[in-house]
Nucleic acid binder design. Structure first.
Lengths: 230, 230, 230, 230
DNA sequence: GATGAATGAGCGTTCATTCAT
DNA sequence: AATGAATGAACGCTCATTCAT
């Protein structure tokens, strides 16, 4: 009825962890992440509940609540973790590449495979699946404008920003770099889904290079150069 | 909630309606569609329940169950209705266009605005919103392979097929027409979302031509021409 | 999470029933009132829950929720019922009494015994106990100013108003008729409590006339008359 | 929640503190009293929990349990403290007053304002608020006869006893001194409540003399004297 | 063909309490 | 002496669904 003062929302919200108690600080906490990631990845957040998680992880519901105040916070945390790891790796691996097209290729490769947080997360694969399936749901979610959404989209925005920036150096005249970046990132995820579940709807093959090649084919051509070549 | 045991008992599943009793056959049925579309569009399926629908439409829950065996079937029905109307219109409006690029432009236009089922559906706008937000969720949904998903994706598949076919005539050498078509359709929806809710993430403007132009910019260039230009 | 539109709060709030579905309209509803009254009377609202009520009445929790949206609404309803019955009887039985002191005596008698709603409520005794113990809690409750409190206090206010008015005719010069009326009514309840549970703290006896006599002793004397009598 | 098995293990129950470990013996203990009083006064015991208290006081729940075995014991302790302080002051300030009516006036004044335990309790105001609101709840509480109630009512009984005794000297013929004393004390608290929250139900004003005057008006007149005056 | 009444199961959350450290 | 971690049990509430009428 009241309880307005106990949810202290520990942890930075934007661009950082949001939790009540650092899940990395205990075995139980790590289990929550591990099993939570696995269950969300397999069954979707829709049907994911703390009850099921607790029984899966062999702990009690109340214990889960010591770490995350609700399942959305847990999802948020996991996704942030994924986006952060992705961003970090993207920065690290592209900073030394001068050729923008080559850089986009590297980004495409990163977007098409799971990314672990520096070896820490054995559940990187799960995080990847969650990010893929749930972030889109979030984009299209109904609770637009809420803090929760802002938290969700933050990582996504940073990645698309990175892609957009790269495209801008590759093709400064293209008028829609940000829109294109969003398409690029989502297409990477979408194709991954089609590849696995509806292969008859795409030519993309299971070999990772196949998807990368398709993604690169989306890069808009520099018209000016062509004109100049005459 | 788990929706793993969805009953398809009555009504053709593929390419057609799935219901227990034809909602178009009674005023009550039409109310279910009308209010159902409205409520799903506004609040998302997540929070949509037959309870709320019934109270909104001034009928009882039990009555709703006479038409649709659960909310997923209703969603399925509504989405199919949308895709069918869209496909129908797309066929009708592009069949006489010879120039494939012009055809793609028309398709892009159709994908970026609500489509009514030949005047029947006053709630076309709602259907469009649902299709936009929910179909993507469905694509990425967890119940892959279920009859339910197949039903969902059927309309989507036919539209992307149409787009792919058109692209193939426009650029026969492009190696990923189907993959591209999926990207094209989803990008149309995604940009619509960004435009409304996260305009800072895209250059696309609210003027409909803006989105259309961006979508056309995704069309892959004929490389042969470029080769020929040397 | 939303559910803001299903609680339609049927029934007039002030001075009337507040329920989702009229409990008098079904056997189940009447059981809810009966067992609810009994349980609240015995164990207090504190420890009263719909769960326990349901299991006591041999129905399910969900069924209880069809009638009352929460236990406070049920309590409110029961108390209103008591106050209304009391007020009705008070009006009926005092309207023909001309002598104000005699009227106060009748009111005191009414306040010191259970009042049934015209034979309808076999649980009048319970209602009385609840009214006695819980209404005071409500008076002193923390959620002052809420609609809930207003609903609670309405019946109380009408009774004290009646008493105050009567006193005013009996002793027009007394400067605190409303304050006195509140004291009068609460004292009736308090003494009833002491009599039962802490008899060593009061001289009032179990014979009903004993309490009535004490209450009448609280009536402030007309000083003017006495002076005039000289 | 049912509080039927309250442990009184340590500490004298009647007329003295009941605790596991003397809260006055440590800073932590004093914090428990201070914040506990504050929180109970503001939100009511209903919603008061050791969890909230602990987080407010910057300690752990487990620590609180070292001092008081449950929230009822804490409440009991605080109320006792209030009544004791009140009784002490009442004794001290009235012992030298010979005129019983004057004495009652002094008692009325004490009952209508906060009383500190000889400068020890900065939270006297809170104690007062708790005593006011909760003691009545206790009187009417459902757990009659329990040790817990006896503890609660002890201080109350001593105060009413004092008042009754005083009245007896003022008006030896009045047949209900104890009943009247209970009414007097409760009326003081009740009017205080009405004054603050429902001023339309009383003529008593915020000036302290107003309430005192009303309380004095409740003192029963010596009929014998009047008779004698003839 | 539609309704009213009811149910069983589950969810999210909080609480009082315990115990090893 | 105090903490951190965890638990079991309950609570309030909603949902999808069924069935007699």
């Amino acid at each position: 009825m009241d309880s307005s003062d106990i949810h202290t929302e520990v942890g930075r919200l934007l661009n950082g962890p949001a939790y009540l108690k650092d899940p990395d600080s205990s075995e139980t906490g790590r289990d929550i992440l591990l099993f939570g990631a696995e269950m969300m990845a397999c069954g979707g957040i829709e049907s994911f509940t703390f009850r099921k998680l607790a029984s899966r992880a062999g702990i009690t519901e109340a214990t889960v609540y010591r770490y995350f105040s609700n399942k959305h916070q847990l999802l948020l945390y996991l996704l942030n973790r994924y986006w952060n790891a992705l961003e970090y790796k993207a920065m690290q691996e592209t900073v030394h590449i001068n050729e923008p097209l080559e850089r986009l290729q590297r980004l495409a490769e990163l977007l098409t495979g799971p990314v672990a947080q520096a070896g820490k997360d054995e559940f990187a694969g799960h995080l990847y699946a969650i990010a893929m399936s749930e972030s889109v749901k979030v984009h299209l979610g109904t609770e637009t404008g809420s803090d929760w959404q802002k938290g969700m989209l933050n990582g996504y925005a940073r990645i698309t920003g990175l892609v957009a920036e790269t495209l801008r150096t590759a093709n400064p005249d293209y008028p829609y770099p940000r829109a294109w970046a969003a398409t690029f990132v989502d297409s990477a995820m979408q194709q991954q889904f089609l590849l696995r579940h509806l292969p008859e709807l795409t030519e993309v093959q299971s070999a990772p290079t196949s998807l990368t090649r398709f993604l690169l084919s989306l890069i808009p051509q520099q018209e000016s150069k062509e004109h100049a070549s005459f």
